[in-house]
Design a protein around this nucleic acid. Sequence first.
DNA 1: GATTACAGTTTTGTATACAAATTACCTCTC
DNA 2: GAGAGGTAATTTGTATACAAAACTGTAATC
Lengths: 229, 229
Amino acid sequence: MPDSNDRKRDVGAQIRTDIITGKLEPGTKLREVALAERYEVSRIPIREALRALEADGLVESRKYSGSVVAPSPVEDAEDLFEIRIVLESATAKRAARRVAERTAGQDPDPRWAEIREEIDAILDAGDAVIEAERYEDLAVLNMRFHFAVAELSGSLSFISLLRQISGKIEWLYSLNLMRRGPQAWPEHREIIAAIDAGQDALAAEVMARHVRRSRDSYFSTMSERPGTT
Amino acid sequence: MPDSNDRKRDVGAQIRTDIITGKLEPGTKLREVALAERYEVSRIPIREALRALEADGLVESRKYSGSVVAPSPVEDAEDLFEIRIVLESATAKRAARRVAERTAGQDPDPRWAEIREEIDAILDAGDAVIEAERYEDLAVLNMRFHFAVAELSGSLSFISLLRQISGKIEWLYSLNLMRRGPQAWPEHREIIAAIDAGQDALAAEVMARHVRRSRDSYFSTMSERPGTT
DNA sequence: GATTACAGTTTTGTATACAAATTACCTCTC
DNA sequence: GAGAGGTAATTTGTATACAAAACTGTAATC
C-alpha cells in the first residue's frame, strides 16, 4: 500500500494510468486543486504533469479554461495506425541500412550491440510469456520491442515522434484489450531477421505488414465489442 | 518599441525566436532566474515556456540540472527531411483520397472549402512575393502551405506530429538561409493539382519528390557554407 | 417570457518564499 | 602533486499566496 511519498513520486504517471485505464473518462474536467489534494501535492507539479500529458495527447487545455481528458483515441485509431506504418517502416529500413554500414565499418556506434542484445532478450521473454499463457504481459514487451527497433535506426527524431504517439497507442490497446500478442510475436522475429540481413526494403515491407495486421486485428475485435467510446 | 507588457505576452515565443535566430547558441545554459529578469516575468512562466520548448525539441532539460539550448538541428537534418517525406506524403495522399470521397458525397466537412481557398490565397501570395523578389517572405508562406495541405488530410494526429517537428525545421531553414523558395513554388501548384484530381498515389509521389528536392537543395547550399554548427 | 447585464463564485495564471538536489570549489590526505 | 571527501554556493523543484480571467446564476428590463 503506497504512502503519500510514493504518490508524490510521479503524479504524471498516476494521472496517466488513471486516464488509460478509464478511471478518468474523456471529457472529465481536471481541476488543478482537486487533483492537488487527491495526490497530496501542490498545484505546481499538477500543472507540469498536465502540460506533459497535453503533449502526449491525453489531455487538452485552453487558457483560463482548464484541462479536460482528451477524447477517446478510438476516433484517431485509423490515423494512429497509419502513422505507425509510415514511421516504423522508415525506422526498420534505416536499421537495416545501418547493418550494411556497420559491416563496411562506417558505423562505430557502441550502443548497437547493446540494443541488439536487448531485443533478443525481449523476444525470448515474449516467447516465455506466451508459453506460460500470461498474455497480459505481452503489451509492455511489444511496446519495448518496437521502441528498440526504433533505437536501432539511430534516429532520435524518429524515436521522439514515436514516443509522442505512444501514449494514445497505449490507451487504444488498453481500451480494446488487444489479444493479438501471440500471433504477432513470430512477425517480430521476421522483422529482426530482415534487419540483420541488411535488407532495408524488405525490413520496411515486413514492418508495414506487421503494423497493418495489428490494425486489422484491432478493428475486427473492435467491431465485436462496439461503442466503447 | 515593446514595453514590458508586450514582452510578458508570450515569453515562449521570444525565447523561441532567440534560439532560432541564433541569439542563444546551442549548449547555452538557460537559467530560470536569468531569463525571468531578462523578460521581466516570474520564474513560473519561464518554466512553462521551457517545457513547451523542450517538447518542440529546441531545449533539453534534466531534473535538477536545468535546461540548455538543444544541439543545432543540422545534426538531425537528414532525419527531419525523411520524417517530412513520410509524413507529408501520407497527408497528401489522404487529402487526395478525400477529394474522391467528397464527390461521392461521403465527406461533409464544411472546413474543406475554407482551407482549399486559403491554399489558393497562399499560392497567389507566394507568386506575388516572387514577382516582387521579396524572397524573405517565402519561408512563412511555405510553412503555411504545407500545414494547409496537412489540414486537408483531415487528420489531427498527422498535423500535431508535423507541428512537433516544425520548430526544428524552422530553425534549420533559418540557419541555412534557404533560398529555394522561387523554384519550389510551381511544385506546390503541382501538388495541389494532384490532390484536386483525387489521384492519391500521384499526390504522395509529387509531395515526396518536392520534399526530396528541398532536402537536396538544403545539403548543396550547406556544403557551400559549411561548419555553421 | 425571453434576453441581457451584472455580480458572485470558481478556476486558472503569476508572483514570492522556501526546500531539496546538484555542482563547484576548497581543503586535507596520501 | 593528484585524488577523495566535505562543505558552501548555485540552481531547480515545490508550496503558499495573490491577481486575473472565465463561468454561473440571478435579477431587471424589454
